[in-house]
Amino acid sequence: MAVKTIDDTENYTIEWDEEIGAIVFTWDKYVSGATFREGCEALLDAIKRRDAAKVLTDTRGINAHDAEDQQWMQTEWMPRALDVGLEYSAVVHPDSVISEMDVESILEGMEHSGAEPLVTSDMAEAREWTAEK
């Protein structure tokens, strides 16, 4: 598996996974506010630089985002990500109903843009889905 690290910080890791043809973004710990947004902006920059249409986000290391971050992600970040070519977004969340609802809330509206999201607690399922897109 050819994986190239794009950015590795104490809060997140961004990699290009050639096997699935996607950026893999992993939250390594819970962050919020400006720190959360910095990570999201780094992901957006990686999407632009790689001209990537697919992102797999691994949030298994955190349980939820705060309401302000969710709102910002939905209204500010997601439209910009779609504008630079994001078409498919798989999000792997911890195996809990609250985490699943959190992720679904953030991705709400993505399907109306013509882009396609997947929300799952199974990394293998997310990798397979992403590779097929």
Rank of each mutant, 00 (worst) to 15 (best):
M1R: 13
M1T: 13
V3Y: 10
V3Q: 13
K4W: 09
K4C: 13
D8M: 12
D8Q: 11
T9R: 08
T9V: 11
T9M: 11
E10Q: 08
N11V: 11
T13C: 14
I14T: 10
W16G: 10
D17E: 13
E18N: 12
E18T: 08
E19I: 11
E19S: 11
E19W: 12
A22W: 03
A22Q: 05
I23T: 09
V24P: 00
F25C: 01
F25M: 05
T26L: 02
T26D: 02
W27L: 12
D28C: 12
G33T: 14
A34F: 12
F36C: 13
E38M: 13
C40S: 15
E41Q: 14
E41A: 15
A42N: 13
L43H: 12
D45R: 05
D45E: 15
A46W: 02
I47V: 14
K48G: 00
R49I: 07
R49N: 09
R49P: 02
R49E: 12
R50W: 08
A52W: 00
K54Q: 09
L56S: 00
L56F: 02
L56Q: 02
T57Y: 01
T57A: 15
D58K: 04
T59D: 04
T59K: 04
I62D: 09
I62L: 10
N63H: 09
H65A: 12
D66H: 08
A67C: 15
D69L: 03
Q70C: 03
Q70M: 07
M73N: 11
M73L: 15
Q74E: 06
T75G: 06
T75L: 10
M78E: 01
A81Y: 03
D83Q: 10
V84L: 07
G85Q: 01
G85E: 00
L86T: 00
E87R: 06
Y88V: 07
S89M: 06
V91C: 03
V91Q: 02
V91S: 01
H93D: 04
H93G: 06
D95H: 11
S96W: 11
S99N: 07
S99Q: 05
S99I: 07
E100M: 03
M101H: 07
D102F: 01
V103Q: 01
V103Y: 00
E104Y: 01
E104C: 04
L107E: 00
E108P: 01
G109S: 04
G109P: 04
M110R: 02
E111T: 06
H112K: 11
H112T: 08
S113Y: 01
G114V: 04
A115C: 10
A115M: 08
E116I: 05
P117C: 09
P117Q: 07
L118N: 05
V119F: 04
V119M: 07
T120A: 10
T120Y: 08
D122I: 10
M123T: 07
A124V: 07
A124E: 13
A124S: 07
E125D: 14
A126N: 01
W129V: 05
T130Q: 04
A131T: 05
E132H: 03
K133P: 08
K133D: 14
K133F: 07
